[in-house]
Design a protein around this nucleic acid. Sequence first.
DNA 1: CGTGAAAATGTAACCGATTACATTCTCGAG
DNA 2: CTCGAGAATGTAATCGGTTACATTTTCACG
Lengths: 330, 330
Amino acid sequence: MTTIKDVARAAGVSVATVSRVHNGSPLVTEATRRRVRKVAVRLGYSPHAAARSLSSKKTNVIGVLLPDLYGEFYSELIRGVDQCAQQRGFHLLVASSHNERAEIAAAVQSMRGRVDGLIVMSPAPGAHRPVKDLPATFPVLLLGAASPGFDSIAIANEAGAREMVQHLIAKGHRRIAMILGPKENQDAAERFEGYQGALGEAGIEEDAALHVTGDFTDTSGYHAARAILNTSPRATAIFAGNDAMAVGALGALREAGVRVPEDMAVAGFDDIPMSRYTHPPLSTVRVDIAGLGERAAVRLFEAVANHRRHRARREVVPGQLILRASTDSP
Amino acid sequence: MTTIKDVARAAGVSVATVSRVHNGSPLVTEATRRRVRKVAVRLGYSPHAAARSLSSKKTNVIGVLLPDLYGEFYSELIRGVDQCAQQRGFHLLVASSHNERAEIAAAVQSMRGRVDGLIVMSPAPGAHRPVKDLPATFPVLLLGAASPGFDSIAIANEAGAREMVQHLIAKGHRRIAMILGPKENQDAAERFEGYQGALGEAGIEEDAALHVTGDFTDTSGYHAARAILNTSPRATAIFAGNDAMAVGALGALREAGVRVPEDMAVAGFDDIPMSRYTHPPLSTVRVDIAGLGERAAVRLFEAVANHRRHRARREVVPGQLILRASTDSP
DNA sequence: CGTGAAAATGTAACCGATTACATTCTCGAG
DNA sequence: CTCGAGAATGTAATCGGTTACATTTTCACG
């Protein structure tokens, strides 16, 4: 492997000059610059990133710590972050932590000297605790979870869910079931609150039989829907905690010969690409996931740039009601 | 930020000892080990990755270079790779290159000193050329593209497509349209060959009017299907180059009031999660994408471990015909 | 020409770890 | 009690860059 020294020797200059050439310093003659460039190309030289970041204290990498990598949500998120990072010449170090406190701690530890900043998403409230052990100057952006002193961005889960349920109520539904997300999941909890809020406002009393717990996978949505079909009096609408579960529910309903939306309205949350193509197309709350990722990256870069005097703040991005055929009038 | 020196000083030992403790060397007294550990925790010390990899020449990171990050295919792939990497204590550096030769070259360059090995996927044949400038000892695994002297894994596109078209022919279809993938895409080209092969075997003559080009997005599938509806005599089946386009095609057919599979059979390729939930469920060729990613990682780690005397070889993973309602008998 | 400021280049310290080699310690055998 | 082998620890070179500071070169101007 050719190093900066090899290039320096071959070009008959010092390593400092080679370094300057590669960093675009103006303190180099045009002639020297060309000569060094040519030699570098001839020897196939490319700077050693680890060495460079050791001395410059910049890695040009940002870390993305996610609870999981399964599903369109995370891939869209990564895409958004990457888009922004790439523009600024940064790379992405991706890690999934499965939401275990210990794993998150380990991941955060191992990021030291590897990244210039960190985007951490941890759905379970409190799971981001290890992040607090980081030196206060280390730029971190939390997705979802909020924590005093930290930058964070979250989705307006509660408001979005409330609007969707209000819409169902406006369509005449009174018995509205909800397929909840995982117990420990903060997004799930907030969406449930929105659901409860809308029912409360409308003076509809809650029925615990209509609350079925899922885990955000389509399979769990399928089973939940089957349970909901057995309620009596039977629910007339299902609000699923996310689109994946709504998709599963649609499958169960079709199997059972229940027509959507005539016999049962169905709504989801997220607006994953698939929602447009289900049968019938799914009403949902759109969250611009890639946009969220991009925004997170932008905020993180701001923090990286400022370093000093950076005031942490929280940002909430609203969702948008997308009404499709699955919630048309009964 | 506390360094190894700080720990050494605070614990009253040399940096070598601290290093030994952290690397589990047996050459340390139990007493010293405990003392150093305690001090390290108290000072919140964690080793600086860049420094460590500079001297040890190991980064514990593998790079994944993809043409894009959009869609379930790539997210599944990453998930598979990550699963394997995580097991071995490795991180993932992800980069998307948009398939531009120059961008790929830049990305490959910037990986030096950052990763111990590289998984490169470049659908356009020849786009992986920059990889050849890497020192021959650098472990690389190509996904899709083959190149003498390089390890590679690919999907059996041609065989999978052939089987699917054979299936359509067996169902009695003679006029089978195909929605092609992007021109430069190798997977797309191979799938087209499989299609042509099956038709040829069956003695069905080709009709260029039945070949519509898309770009692997659902939107392009939608438009392609509309074009196909105008063929005359009208095709009775559509084989889409991937599931996303098949999904778009289903949307166009439903809009046009064309029943699937009665009036028109539809098949795809990939078996993305969505395919199970379309209306009707989509026949497709299943590719275990996460498994592919995992296998790629395993192969790469083999190469990393061997370094010397590693013989490159090519591996082709077969697809599996998944028959669902979208191609039931007319 | 001589001169000095600015421009170009070189020298060497430093970033934070690993590790070969040197040194010191420990403890049982003689 | 001495000695020496092996265990424990320390010293310092090294990895490949960046950059402050020192030195040399260039060149406009008197």
